[in-house]
Write a protein that binds this DNA or RNA. Structure first.
Lengths: 208, 208
DNA sequence: CTTTGTCCTAACAAAATTGTTAAACAGTAT
DNA sequence: ATACTGTTTAACAATTTTGTTAGGACAAAG
């Protein structure tokens, strides 16, 4: 009958924990409230995950992986011409964040509150980013040589794209009440915003 | 001697509380740790502010006011020609956030975690924003008629400016370790970033 | 010198939150 | 049936965190 019965208690707890941690953060989350949302006693949570800390780690690992996938999406399809590629990259990144709107705020908050914990993770990430963007910069440079686009710093462009796309969702609850009709219809606003972000970046790289 | 002696205990507690709440949020903050940072017993904190909640409200009120000042800065100097005005508005907003780098994340987190608390505040803010931007939109429209700039939606432009400026600081701890040399020198990076944000927006409104 | 009010401390109390344990239970293999 | 396994519950324990209180020190005012 009830299709929650199909999922194991462990799955139920993980799902409830994800929701709780993403919205309230580690400090704001309560193991009892996670257990309640999952429909189990809080002893079960300790039975499966031992401590709040370990349950949290499970969520964090998943979310950090998802976040890095989202960033990879910006790179776009290398087989396309540079402008189309960037266009597609922005759209893919935007859609990715739209599907995981709570993700960036969670990841950023976590890194701010416990930076030391992610140093190791970061050594790798920095290395990957650097090699990827060296080749991307070369591609942009050669397109600039051919006069197709303006010469730009790829890392700066990358930061701008993330800014425009991520802020839309991170600040949504902050902006929505003060923006009136513009944001009244969420679907429509997000579509407009995606187009606006693409337009903004394309104009940034357009040869003039 | 010690110039901390000059400040009242109340001031010391407020300063310590501001630091603690801005970095760790309400849930992560500990009244004992605030008291310790202020160099007083935690009973003093309750003596002056009764509860953690009331101490927090003092900080929140101050920070929300500061945040709204920062947003007003974007409006710029009405006596300048439109492009100069926008340029100045972006720079002023950027500098404001640079001087209060922890502010946006704090305000956004607070609104996300307790939206109901700020409904009243928001009724007003939405009203003010609307009237300000109606007149601003009219000004932009007339500049567009004269062919000085592209026709743009002022609210969308406003969101883009906030995105570019605020993300720089909100995500700084997240980006810094993966961006290598680009962000090695904070002062230099921020100067470059400010210029980049202005360039990005100016190109967005440039007639083409 | 006493009174009054503010500031302050140390110890205590209360509440919330996380974590543990012993025993019950359900299913499965022997 | 019996023993064995992993799962579940209810009650309890420990810890952390917030909040209280009784009283002392001290300065200003009468």
């Amino acid at each position: 009958m009830d299709n929650q019965e199909k999922q194991s208690k462990e799955q139920l707890i993980l799902a409830a924990a994800e929701q709780e941690f993403l919205t309230k953060g580690y400090d704001g989350a309560r193991t009892t409230s996670i257990a309640q949302a999952a429909g189990v006693t809080h002893a079960m949570l300790h039975y499966y995950f031992r401590t709040k800390e370990q349950l949290f780690e499970r969520i964090v690992d998943d979310k950090f992986a998802t976040m890095s996938h989202s960033m990879v999406a910006i790179i776009g399809d290398p087989s396309l011409p540079i402008v189309e590629r960037i266009k597609g990259g922005i759209a893919a990144h935007f859609d990715f964040i739209a599907a995981n709107p709570l993700l960036p705020r969670f990841v950023i908050n976590e890194i701010v509150s416990r930076p030391e914990r992610y140093e190791v993770l970061y050594k790798r990430a920095g290395f990957v980013v650097n090699s990827v963007y060296n080749s991307l910069q070369a591609e942009v440079d050669s397109a600039a040589e051919r006069g197709e686009i303006e010469r730009v710093d790829v890392k700066m462009l990358f930061i701008s794209i993330m800014s425009l796309n991520i802020f839309t969702f991170v600040a949504y609850p902050f902006m929505e009440p003060i923006m009136g009709e513009l944001m009244a219809n969420r679907e429509q606003f997000l579509a407009e915003r995606k187009a606006e972000n693409i337009e903004t970046i394309l104009r940034r790289i357009k040869k003039q």
